[in-house]
């Protein structure tokens, strides 16, 4: 106590001394909390903010002939995103090519999110309604795909749905079809692949919130004349909302930037943002444009998140 209050004048009252001591104790507690946080902050700084800064700088430079950048300021990368520059007279003409790739990506990621929610919700409810000792087994089964690399799993889908794959061969042998159905390299293939890849990210948070659901509330709703559908709509879904929000974010964001799935199942023909960015750093050798595309993706994600959180915050009466 004496050390802590040493800075106070002799005339300070006991209450003043106590307040000063409390203030200093709180300050040191705050410092200790920041110390706990520091490893994470250092990692985020080195591997997150630093590369992000480089990306931001590169996006305002000029592309080098063999990749890389030359240190000359230019906003060409952002102009190129929306306009085509005429080779002869340098005039700008609006071009929707890249916008449409973003639109497609958002559409596919959104579709995959809705799909994963529709499939994941009954699954999570099923697991949450099982006896406690059985739930771990089901959760284990849900996480099982993570044991195999995503690339290998996506390749497996490719082998199954290609023209000479199990489905087409099987259907042809049964005589159901004459020619293979062209499933690979379509939007549907990418869509299905995205759902498959990110389904566990939907199921796990949904399960976490459904598991906490007080089943007596469901009984109370039944008792108050709510049919099964009304119980789902007025009690179960509102109570599971935190899980639904978390699951949707966890599927939508990685889905939007997906690379492997559209690369393998879309065959490079059906480009998504991830492939576009990768292409700029490899084949096209346009690093500034790749950087700009990546930053635009980030802004899109952040903007949609902010809008979503604002909207759902108002809607859900802040229930948590």
């Amino acid at each position: 106590m004496a050390d802590l209050t040493a800075t106070l004048p002799e005339s300070a009252t006991t209450a003043d001394r106590l307040a000063e001591a409390r203030r200093q104790t709180e300050a040191s507690a705050r410092l200790r909390r920041w110390q706990l946080l520091s490893p994470a902050l250092i990692i985020i700084g080195i591997f997150g903010l630093f590369p992000l800064t480089i990306t931001l700088i590169y996006s305002f430079l000029t592309p080098g002939t063999y990749g890389g950048v030359t240190w000359k300021f230019s906003t060409d990368a952002y102009v190129q995103f929306l306009f085509d520059r005429d080779i002869f007279d340098d005039t700008l003409q609006f071009s929707g090519t890249y916008l449409s790739i973003y639109g497609r990506s958002i559409g596919l990621a959104f579709g995959a999110t809705v799909g994963a929610l529709i499939i994941g919700f009954p699954t999570a409810y099923f697991i949450a309604s099982k006896p406690l000792e059985q739930r771990n087994l089901w959760l284990f089964l849900i996480t099982l795909p993570f044991w195999v690399n995503l690339l290998v799993r996506t390749y497996a889908i490719l082998l199954i749905i290609r023209d000479e794959g199990i489905i087409n061969i099987g259907l042809m042998n049964m005589g159901a079809i004459d020619r293979p159905i062209g499933m690979l390299y379509t939007d549907y293939a990418v869509f299905a692949g995205l759902i498959y890849s990110y389904l566990p990210f939907m199921v796990l948070p949904l399960y976490a919130s459904l598991e906490k659901l007080d089943f007596r509330l469901v009984e109370a709703a039944y008792d108050l004349y709510a049919s099964r559908f009304q119980v789902l709509r007025h009690v179960i879904i509102p109570m599971a909302k935190p899980g639904i929000v978390a699951g949707c974010i966890l599927v939508f964001i990685p889905g939007l930037g997906a690379y492997i799935t559209p690369e393998l199942l879309g065959g490079g023909k059906e480009l998504m943002i991830g492939n576009l960015i990768a292409l700029q750093f490899s084949g096209s050798r346009n690093w500034p444009f790749g950087s700009a595309a990546a930053l635009i993706l980030m802004v899109v994600v952040m903007a949609s998140l902010i809008i979503y959180v604002r909207y759902s915050g108002k809607e859900g009466n802040g229930h948590g």
């Binding site: 007596r216 509330l217 009984e219 109370a220 008792d223 007025h234 009690v235 229930h319």
Partner: peptide, 20 residues
Amino acid sequence: LPPYKRPVNTVFQSYALFPH
């Protein structure tokens, strides 16, 4: 009959009020 078709209501031990 299922509970929602009976003109009977319950006060639960835990109250089971809808928190949302």
